[in-house]
Structure formats: structure tokens, C-alpha cells
Design a protein around this nucleic acid. Structure first.
Length: 290
DNA sequence: AGGCAGGTGGCCA
DNA sequence: TGGCCACCTGCC
């Protein structure tokens, strides 16, 4: 596949090699891969595809497949949230009074959140239950290849839409390696297609109401709902509590014996309106030190 | 070979 | 609310 020439992008907050990797391939998104032996990342979101690489001074360079540049640049800018002042957001977090958070922030300078399409974020995280990142990526890849539409003739595939998912059987989803997640995805697809516009509605709702609606979908519990809202709907109050955050809060904050619900509440109360952003640092930090 | 993994939901006290 | 368990599948 021929690509255009590299062009520069200047994010308000600079990247590093490590923050680029952690942002694209650290568990927020599941469709980025590193091109062999080169420091190039290739990723697909919605109906767009791009390659990225680090440029001098924390800038990025990007390119698109030749002939498919279309509206991609504004989409890329929006996806990567290049105009967001992440340093300013970090400064608002309570790191001054929280040594554990301070250490996590300093370990991953340049880490940021992505702004992924909401419907596919929900799908990816429905796949994520009790799976590790490499396995989740394989499931997403299978879904895209077998059910999703090609981005352009002979091109790679987008993740399937919920409408496309509603047209396949649970057995077929199981054949893609989804296991018990197949039933949840199938049922969720049926519910979504029965209520046209429901995901757009949910995405536009305030955090608490959006979460309550998401919890009505089978297979979507508190953690998956928070991931979909944080990574796919820019609800930064969302504080997904997974096994890593559980470990982090137990070990570094001394919250032994707390329930997941209590942990969630602690995160949102202690870390504030950008709790989800802080969560991403704690998550990366805990995983790096595993 | 058997246990465990970015969880959820059902059941029981 | 809290504890316990089944649930697919693949990897260590």
C-alpha cells in the first residue's frame, strides 16, 4: 500500500517515544501496531487509517494511504486531541499532596487520552473482559476482518458497526474467538439496533446518566462502561477500576479491603474531574512495575 | 496439566 | 452490600 509523504504535526503537549507507545498501544485503543523494525505506528479508527512516527522536539509526523487522504487530517487531529493542553490538565491533578500520583505522572511524561469513536470503543471493551491486551487486539482484528467493511477497495477493514454485528449469529462471533463475550455483543447489538440513535444520545449525556444507560447493555458493567465513556466519549470523570488500578490503590494508597465500588468513589472524589486521566497514569505505572 | 487473565451477572446470605 | 462461581479461550 503506497503512502503519501510524511507531514509534520505539532501537538500542544510534546510526545516522547515512550508516551507515543503508551498512548497508542497501552490499552486505550486496540488497533495500533508497530511496523516491524521501524518506529512507525499504524492505526485504524472509524473509517480512517494513518501512520505516525515521532519527529524532533516531541512533534509527530503522519501519512495516509495515497489517494485516501480525504478528511483524514482533521479526523486525526480530533482523534489525537492535539490541541488539548495536557500539561495544564496534569497540573490540576492533586499530585502536590499525592506522592503515588506524582511518581506515576513523572514516569510517563507526555501520556494522554485518545478521543475514539464511541460505538467502536464500546465494542472493543466488550471484548476486553478477562483478556490481556494482545488477546483483545486479536479479537478486534478478527471482528474487523470478518465483519467490518474495507476502508477502501482492497484496503484494511474498519471495525464492524453495531448494525453489521446485529446481522451475524452468536455462533459466528464465537468462531472469531470471542468466547462468552459473543453472547453479550450479539445481545447488545440487537438492543442498539432496536433503538436507533441510542449511542449518540448516551454519548451526549452527562457522565452519570450516560453510565446508567450503558449499564443496561448485557456484558457492560461498571468498568467497561467507564472505559467506553473515558476513551470514547471524553467523560474524564469516569474512573475505570480494573485489576491494575485495584493493585495500585491497595498498594500505593493503602486501601486494603475496599470494594470496587468504594475504589471508584475514592478515585472520583480524590482525583476530581480528570480522574480518568489520572487513572491512565496509575494504570501505566502499575503495569510497568509489574 | 491447570490456573489465570483490563469483568459481569446470577444467586444467596 | 459482600462473597462465590460460571463463563470461552489461549498462553504460561
Amino acid at each position: 500500500m503506497p503512502w503519501t509523504d510524511w507531514k509534520p504535526l505539532y501537538p500542544k503537549t510534546p510526545f516522547t517515544e515512550s508516551s507515543l507507545r503508551e498512548t497508542l498501544d497501552g490499552g486505550q485503543a486496540f488497533r495500533w501496531k508497530r511496523i516491524e523494525s521501524e518506529n512507525i505506528w499504524e492505526g485504524i479508527w472509524g473509517r480512517d487509517i494513518a501512520q505516525l512516527t515521532l519527529a524532533p522536539k516531541g512533534a509527530l509526523a503522519f501519512r495516509f494511504p495515497e489517494g485516501h487522504e480525504g478528511a483524514s487530517l482533521s479526523s486525526l487531529n480530533n482523534y489525537l486531541l492535539l490541541d488539548t493542553d495536557w500539561a495544564q490538565r496534569i497540573d490540576q491533578l492533586p499530585w502536590r499532596s499525592d506522592p503515588a500520583l506524582k511518581a506515576a505522572l513523572e514516569a510517563q511524561p507526555g501520556l494522554r487520552l485518545l478521543n475514539q469513536p464511541f460505538p467502536e470503543t464500546l465494542l472493543c471493551f466488550l471484548c476486553s473482559a478477562t483478556k490481556q491486551i494482545p488477546q483483545i487486539k486479536i479479537m478486534c482484528e478478527n471482528l474487523a476482518r470478518e465483519i467490518g467493511s474495507p476502508l477502501f477497495p482492497k484496503g484494511p477493514h474498519a471495525l464492524p458497526t453495531w448494525d453489521q454485528l446485529s446481522h451475524v449469529s452468536e455462533a459466528f462471533l464465537r468462531s472469531l474467538g470471542l468466547g462468552f463475550r459473543a453472547k453479550n455483543i450479539k445481545k447488545t447489538a440487537d438492543l442498539i439496533t432496536q433503538s436507533p440513535g441510542i449511542l449518540e444520545t448516551i454519548e451526549a449525556l452527562p457522565y452519570a446518566e450516560a453510565k446508567a444507560k450503558l449499564l443496561e447493555f448485557p456484558g457492560v458493567g461498571s468498568k467497561i462502561a467507564d472505559c467506553a465513556l473515558l476513551f470514547g466519549a471524553q467523560k474524564y470523570e469516569a474512573f475505570p477500576v480494573d485489576t491494575w488500578i485495584l493493585k495500585s490503590l491497595r498498594k500505593r494508597y493503602g486501601l486494603d479491603g475496599w470494594s470496587n465500588a468504594q475504589m471508584e468513589r475514592f478515585g472520583r472524589v480524590h482525583l476530581g474531574p480528570d480522574a480518568g486521566y489520572a487513572q491512565q497514569f496509575l494504570f501505566a505505572y502499575e503495569r510497568a512495575n509489574a
